[in-house]
Amino acid sequence: MAPPTPPISSYVNYSIPAKNGASWSALLKVFAYVLLVFWAVIVVYPMVWSLIAALKTDAEIFRTPWSIPAILQFENFGRAWKKAQIGAYIGNTFLVIVPAISFTLLLSSMAAYVLARFEFTGKRLLSTMFLIGMMFPVFLALVPLYLVMRYIKEFTGIPMLNTFHGLIVVYIAYSLSWTIFFMTGFFKTLPKEIAEAAMIDGASHSQVFFRVMLPLSKPGLVSAGIFNFLGQWNQFILPTVLMSNANVEAGQTRYVVSQGLYYFQNQQMYQSDFSGLFAAVAIVTLPTLIVYLVFQDRIEKGLTVGALKG
């Protein structure tokens, strides 16, 4: 994958005395940059190329991968948004993830606060139980989860499959593990004295939590919110099993974005609109790109914190 090592390397070590170490390290530096640029191109180019393709006509896309759009086809984006229903998919996704993220943050910080600050019987068991969820891949639970959703309807009459509220509840449940873990660590860093002082002033546990601890944990909540946004916006497996588009009228799609994109891609076999698909990819990538560039530091730190301490 990497360009071949310059053969000079061994030669330099043996025949050129140490005072030439500077030129040796300069050479290494050049080699390092060549490697970095090479990987940067591999990372960026497919995305830039997709963006350019989003502005081409289908004919231009088919002619050669190197063609440049003669006229910028901005209507590809409009077609992707309306006709391919990307707009509707994005609407559905927000309908699901806005309540899902809000409740994930609320419920997780409640549980995390209790786990971080109180001693009680069964605490270890509960912590372990939540940790397990971070280790098992989601797809292992797919079949039984599907059945749980069906049996909830059978026993309570509330439909869960193919509903937005069903997907919201499942998103929350599968986001709890990581978010509780993350927020527990955060609450542990907050000074105990503030809560104690508030208690002496006669505040209840709940008042301490909502009026003192929650406002103090804002930075943690923001980080956890960003992660849950990325995770839930990108979710593919859960909606694939729990959300079907069957039996809905035209214009009433229930799909979320990643599902909708996959469906659109599959449609290419019957009715090709590659420029529209490229435009759709660009539209869906944009929110992630913005969130990433704005919160880049936090995302790097937060994503790895679970891994390092876990």
Partner: peptide, 8 residues
């Protein structure tokens, strides 16, 4: 968590 994660 119990109903939607552990039970499955």
């Amino acid at each position: 968590y119990f109903v939607f994660v552990l039970v499955p």
